[in-house]
Nucleic acid binder design. Sequence first.
DNA 1: GTCTATACGTTGATAGAC
DNA 2: GTCTATCAACGTATAGAC
Lengths: 244, 244
Amino acid sequence: MSKATAGLDETQARGLTEAWEDFGPPSARRLLIAAVDAFAARGYHGTSTRDIADRAGLSPAGVYVHFASKEDLFYRITLIGHQQTLRNALLAVDSAGPDAGPAERLRAVVEAQTTWQARHHTTARVVEYDLPSLSPEHYEEVGALRRRIAAVVHGILGEGARRGEFDVPDVDGTTLALLSMVTDVARWYPSNSRQSPEELGKLYGDLALRMAAPHGGAGGAFGTAGTGTGEGDDDSTDGGAAEH
Amino acid sequence: MSKATAGLDETQARGLTEAWEDFGPPSARRLLIAAVDAFAARGYHGTSTRDIADRAGLSPAGVYVHFASKEDLFYRITLIGHQQTLRNALLAVDSAGPDAGPAERLRAVVEAQTTWQARHHTTARVVEYDLPSLSPEHYEEVGALRRRIAAVVHGILGEGARRGEFDVPDVDGTTLALLSMVTDVARWYPSNSRQSPEELGKLYGDLALRMAAPHGGAGGAFGTAGTGTGEGDDDSTDGGAAEH
DNA sequence: GTCTATACGTTGATAGAC
DNA sequence: GTCTATCAACGTATAGAC
């Protein structure tokens, strides 16, 4: 067990290392892993470059051999993290097969993204919750990746609605709600759940379909009170996929 | 417009001050509002006591007349914020009436909590996302309030399931998903939505009912398509994960 | 590439005048 | 209750030896 992962149990250490295994020289990689772990625990501003260097087994100055600044280190983490997440989403859609309809594709994406957030919850926490600490330029660059991820879900909901296979009166709003549900896993997992990432993924995939599927509707199964669903208003569907 | 709210547009300033209008002496209240605004923008560790004092129109030392420490200031914000959120949830359940069934109550709570998160998104962001910066004792105290909030939703889902009015195979998991959806509003609102807090609340209340209501079922029109891009590794955790 | 040493601004917090 | 002045610790980052 390296210094960078001291204090973590073996399974955890292996996973964190594997998530970043393609990254550069050993010392740089150790710094990156140490930084992910520290940022996840205390946030960007709550973590000092000394913390990171210590965890990686280097002196404070060692950081600057491999990264131009603390922000640069953070930026690389967020960029790679988002690229991996986007790839995960696109692979999930592909895995549903060329003939898959919106329902299968929605389930596939939500399940895969949820599983990802749970399995890589440490990385995901850094990547999801500290973005305003990036420089404006880097923030915008990462934002573009986030819009592409949102567009995957938005596109599936929109197509399902157009085809009449979904009942989604507000595609923009439902996209946001769905992404929120998935994103937020990184904030709490695994403290409130004993489910595996895969089990959680299945549950969330199921919930996503319920949110999009045709259902009882206004005055349906819940007749006793004003629980109608379609409020009559709605949105124009289109537009850009929401940023998330 | 006071110094504490300078630079905010009117709606934001109103939502921000509304939540804290009952708080003590004017200077203390100005400090609190200034702190909420600063913490929301840059996080607890990213905000200095000088930032806060400046925004409140006081010298750096002025903070310590009213609060024992930076952590104390943050603690009071999170405590009051959580108390208000819990009250909001309980009032929503009451407002559904004594004869309301699980469906009406679920809709009422989710709608009210979503509207609250959107209207008070600045306060909510501080209160939801920086909790690990609290001292262990204060973290536990706030955690107890969070568990009570979660219990409201959990209780409604459980009762609906027992009565057969809901189809919720995993009450714990669905509670988490529902709370995630609502909580996460504070992270992105209003940047990705032009909907009012009330409109967003209606949408989310509707989505919550869809998640809980009886539906086509696993063998129905939307067959299960197991997917996912599981790799098999895990990720570490070391910081205290947020309670939910 | 890594170290030791250090520059030098910022931080949370306190002392004491008014 | 608010200020000015101040402190010791810590922050990011650099210089230069090896």
